[in-house]
Simulated assay, not measured.
Amino acid sequence: MSVTSNAHKLGQLIDKVQGHVGDKHIEVLHGIRLDIDATDLHAVASDRYTIAAARYRLNYGDQRQEPWARTIPGSWLKPLREWVNSHGGGDTITISTETGRVDFTTAHTEIRIPVTDDQEFPNWRALLRGIAAEIPTIYAFPAIDARMLTRWADTGDVLRVRVTTDQKALMVFGEDFVGAQMPKRYAGIGPCEEETFEQALALWPHLFTDDGDTADMATDMPDENKPRYEATSSIPDMVESLLQQTLRSTSDMLGAPSEEPGAMASFAIAGVNAWSAYRFLAALHKADPRLATQTVADLAEELDAGDFSETAWDIAEAAGHDPQKWADDYEAHLKKLAAKRAAEAETQPATSQPADA
């Protein structure tokens, strides 16, 4: 099973969707899906929150082949893109699949990429059909310059977008930000004033069909498989984690045995620290969202590195404190507590043993 493309078009396919590749915690999304059907070579990527599909029209002539799809792992995307870029734009690249791999071949060289043949991937066609099915065909359909959309990233905020009509600006709203963007006069497919949503759907006749399955991105995407020890670099995820820890610690504290005051104190301290961290993060995000985002990202790297205890020691010394005295005092406290418990155990009456039968 093979298809051909020139190097320029294949490079374009990779570039158009690479920004949507999921991270390593979602294995099935950590890569680009090559999906071949009767008419097109598709490159598809998704990170659960966005999904992008680019296509290249194939020229089969009178021949047809069985559709096939394989996911190029994320770790191979950079080597593949560099290999493609090493060729002239007009060089023909044959893409073929063998058991356990996908081969990219030219007249003089090739690259073989190991893949998992039976690896599942979200039904991207059904997901896009499900979204399109909920949009009225009379919906305003302005053409937006994708290069201008990146300008809104500097707001460092969650934005809401309101589309009005085809020839009017769309509105952008954030908690502390508001703006607008004018549409382009030419959509790249046809003049804006002549193109409707129905006409755009008709450009993908094999995708947006009435009898096709539909899916929902909110419920039909794979879950993350993030290790517990790995810190989050996302503010929403950290907020959720801190609030969960606050409630969990409070619940554990109320359920702790009364004869173990140390356990109760530990749960109380954990809850207080989690709530304090949440309040500080919320205040920082309100005052400076970009600084809050960068701080959470830096914190994730420090926690994952695992050397924050040594860093805290250095910072304490630089601030004029004596961390060694803190450690000695805490060690003395633990020894005193252990001696107290040992003394209490000796004063307890011995439990009577049952007589042998």
Results as ranks from 00 to 15, higher is better:
residue 107 A to Q: 15
residue 252 D to V: 13
residue 15 D to Q: 12
residue 28 V to C: 11
residue 14 I to G: 01
residue 134 E to W: 04
residue 323 P to M: 10
residue 63 Q to R: 15
residue 105 T to N: 05
residue 45 A to K: 00
residue 4 T to K: 12
residue 281 L to I: 06
residue 97 T to F: 09
residue 164 T to L: 11
residue 129 R to W: 03
residue 20 H to N: 12
residue 169 A to V: 02
residue 316 A to Q: 13
residue 287 A to Q: 14
residue 169 A to Q: 12
residue 230 E to T: 12
residue 40 D to A: 09
residue 155 T to N: 05
residue 296 V to C: 09
residue 88 G to H: 14
residue 66 E to H: 09
residue 142 P to T: 01
residue 350 A to P: 14
residue 153 A to Y: 15
residue 255 G to W: 01
residue 183 P to V: 06
residue 323 P to I: 04
residue 10 L to V: 04
residue 229 Y to W: 11
residue 322 D to M: 09
residue 30 H to L: 02
residue 194 E to M: 02
residue 218 A to N: 14
residue 90 G to L: 13
residue 158 V to Y: 14
residue 241 S to H: 08
residue 325 K to S: 14
residue 29 L to D: 04
residue 326 W to K: 12
residue 147 R to Q: 12
residue 295 T to Y: 05
residue 30 H to A: 09
residue 174 G to Y: 07
residue 264 M to L: 13
residue 253 M to Y: 12
residue 125 R to G: 14
residue 352 S to P: 10
residue 275 W to D: 08
residue 31 G to C: 05
residue 239 V to W: 00
residue 219 T to H: 08
residue 244 Q to S: 13
residue 53 A to P: 00
residue 178 V to D: 11
residue 133 A to F: 08
residue 152 W to M: 14
residue 204 W to Y: 14
residue 242 L to C: 00
residue 38 A to G: 13
residue 248 R to M: 14
residue 68 W to A: 02
residue 229 Y to G: 15
residue 199 Q to E: 03
residue 200 A to V: 02
residue 45 A to G: 00
residue 286 K to Y: 03
residue 18 Q to I: 12
residue 20 H to C: 12
residue 260 E to F: 07
residue 99 T to H: 15
residue 207 L to F: 13
residue 64 R to W: 09
residue 256 A to W: 05
residue 43 A to R: 01
residue 207 L to D: 03
residue 213 D to C: 02
residue 270 A to F: 08
residue 336 K to H: 11
residue 153 A to T: 08
residue 295 T to S: 11
residue 352 S to A: 11
residue 27 E to R: 15
residue 203 L to G: 01
residue 50 T to P: 02
residue 181 Q to G: 07
residue 70 R to D: 04
residue 158 V to Q: 11
residue 322 D to N: 15
residue 187 A to N: 07
residue 58 L to M: 13
residue 235 I to Y: 00
residue 307 D to F: 10
residue 26 I to F: 04
residue 317 E to G: 10
residue 296 V to K: 06
residue 306 G to K: 14
residue 221 M to A: 08
residue 44 V to S: 00
residue 73 P to M: 01
residue 355 A to N: 00
residue 346 E to M: 13
residue 190 G to I: 01
residue 172 V to T: 07
residue 212 G to N: 01
residue 221 M to N: 02
residue 216 D to R: 02
residue 354 P to V: 01
residue 17 V to Y: 06
residue 283 A to M: 11
residue 144 I to S: 02
residue 352 S to D: 12
residue 47 D to W: 02
residue 224 E to Q: 07
residue 133 A to E: 08
residue 20 H to A: 15
residue 322 D to I: 08
residue 181 Q to K: 04
residue 276 S to V: 05
residue 288 D to Y: 01
residue 161 V to D: 04
residue 290 R to D: 06
residue 119 Q to R: 13
residue 107 A to N: 12
residue 236 P to C: 02
residue 343 A to Q: 06
residue 270 A to W: 07
residue 8 H to Q: 13
residue 28 V to S: 10
residue 112 R to A: 07
residue 263 A to Q: 08
residue 2 S to N: 05
residue 260 E to V: 12
residue 296 V to M: 07
residue 114 P to L: 07
residue 124 W to N: 03
residue 344 E to Q: 04
residue 306 G to A: 08
residue 283 A to Y: 03
residue 102 V to G: 00
residue 245 Q to E: 04
